[in-house]
């Protein structure tokens, strides 16, 4: 067992997957000698060589298409985009090809791949480096969207994503890349890809979050416990396909739900979760389902960013509002 950060867990999972499966390739900008802009691929070039760790030209519109061709030929490419704001060209290939190659050839061809990139705000980065685009990806049929929130889950979910026979978009919360160290066993054990994680059990309110909002949610649950409110914290983790069963079971027990995400609210993941609760869990609800989110505005530059992102006080306020309904 080794104590590691989230980004180290990503690197450990990549190395593990590459060691156990010679078809796994890592490719992207600066993933070789430089080890990636966040060092997620550090040491992989030295260990696996330039035919497994491929530095590409600066070609974001190319990467996922390249992975489609490699995947159809039996490789398992793991593509790194450097930042969330540069991931949008991937959408063309994910929608038009990666997510449908298996379906449109009725199983004749498929393209396993993992598209990973750091996402989210809170690191005072330049423009286009602090976005939460998970809803764009989660809307694409045939593509899984996965977001870890701890080193252990980053390790287990990334292994699962690489072993999965279909395309997976893997968003890594850069704000907590190095926030904590956690014991991670490098035993090659993967986590399930369509299950939410109940991080803390509770009776009164279900607090749903993912990525860098998980530490905020856990903090909120600790604060609320002091007030005698028992909060169940769920890490969505596998945003798409969404594990509705775990959510519905939780809300059946608590009757209240607050959803926290960094992305803007309109047509966002919180809306999807609220819709599931409205259509399948309405009669368990004791209070309106509330969302704590960013705003429907372009991600502000760092001086206003903290006010754009949900923080502890906002989550506490929403939870107290939900608890006011008895």
């Amino acid at each position: 067992m080794t104590a590691m950060t989230l980004v180290e867990a990503v690197r450990t999972a990549l190395a593990r997957a590459m060691a156990e499966d010679p078809t796994v390739l890592v490719l992207g900008e600066d993933v070789g000698k430089d080890g990636g802009v966040f060092r997620a691929t550090e040491g992989l070039l030295e260990r696996f060589g330039p035919e497994r760790v491929l530095d590409t030209p600066l070609s974001e519109a190319l990467f996922v298409g390249l992975a489609v061709g490699l995947g159809a030929q039996g490789f398992k490419p793991v593509v790194e985009f450097q930042f969330d704001g540069f991931s949008y060209p991937a959408i063309d290939q994910l929608v038009n090809h990666a997510g449908r190659l298996r379906a449109r050839t009725r199983g004749r061809l498929s393209c396993p791949m993992v598209v990973r990139f750091p996402y989210g705000g809170g690191v005072r980065a330049p423009e286009h480096h602090s976005e939460s685009p998970e809803a764009f990806f989660a809307h694409i049929p045939g593509v899984r969207t996965v977001i870890p929130s701890s080193p252990a889950r980053a390790y287990g979910l990334l292994l699962a994503a690489i072993r999965d026979p279909d395309p997976v978009v893997f968003l890594e919360p850069k704000r907590i890349y190095r926030a904590v160290r956690e014991e991670v066993v490098d035993d090659g054990r993967a986590l399930p890809l369509d299950r939410c994680f109940v991080l803390r059990e509770g009776r009164d309110l279900t607090l749903v979050a993912w990525g860098a909002m998980i530490p905020v949610a856990l903090q909120a649950s600790a604060e609320l416990a002091k007030e005698g409110v028992s909060v169940e914290v769920i890490d969505i983790a596998t945003l798409k396909p969404l594990d509705c069963a775990t959510l519905l079971d939780s809300v059946a027990k608590t009757g209240r739900c607050v959803i926290v995400h960094e992305a803007p609210p309109s047509f966002g993941p919180g809306a999807e979760i609220a819709a599931v609760l409205a259509s399948e869990g309405l009669f368990s609800l004791l209070a309106p389902v509330l969302r704590v989110t960013a705003f429907d505005v372009p991600t502000p530059l760092p001086r206003l960013e903290e006010l754009f992102l949900p923080a502890l006080a906002d989550v506490l306020e929403a939870c107290r509002r939900a608890m006011a309904h008895r």
């Binding site: 298409g65 489609v68 061709g69 159809a72 063309d92 004749r108």
Partner: peptide, 24 residues
């Protein structure tokens, strides 16, 4: 069996060809 299906979004299959060629 390994040939690709027709590509309708114009030119979006050129990256696939690069991927297939990389595999070779």
């Amino acid at each position: 069996r390994e040939d690709f299906p027709v590509c309708i979004p114009v030119g979006t299959h050129a990256p696939h060809a690069a991927g297939v060629a990389t595999a070779f």
